[in-house]
């Protein structure tokens, strides 16, 4: 996650653009933030899936211990 945000900042710095007028921050950087948010959502989704797996596994571990 950190690497990604650094990449984003680097790319924004490199492209050196300023958002125009009163547009919302999402439109700034020629809509690069949209990509950033999309990647964030995907990461959170995959992490949620991992947590689901984690809980299933610990349930099974618990069962095995009981027997």
């Amino acid at each position: 996650m950190n690497i990604l945000s650094i990449l984003t900042v680097l790319l924004l710095e490199a492209s050196n653009t300023s958002s125009v007028g009163a547009e919302s921050w999402m439109y700034g950087g020629e809509k690069f933030y949209v990509v950033f948010v999309v990647i964030l959502i995907i990461f959170f989704g995959i992490f949620t899936f991992l947590i689901l797996l984690e809980r299933k596994l610990s349930k099974i571990e618990h069962q095995i211990k009981e027997r």
């Binding site: 999402m26 439109y27 809509k31 949209v34 948010v37 999309v38 959502i41 995907i42 989704g45 899936f49």
Partner: peptide
């Protein structure tokens, strides 16, 4: 089940993208 997780991600990311295009 896994496909639904990815479908939900597709819908969420698509909504963000659609909002700003």
């Amino acid at each position: 089940v896994t496909a639904m997780v990815f479908g939900a991600l597709g819908i969420l990311t698509g909504m963000v993208w659609a909002k700003f295009t």
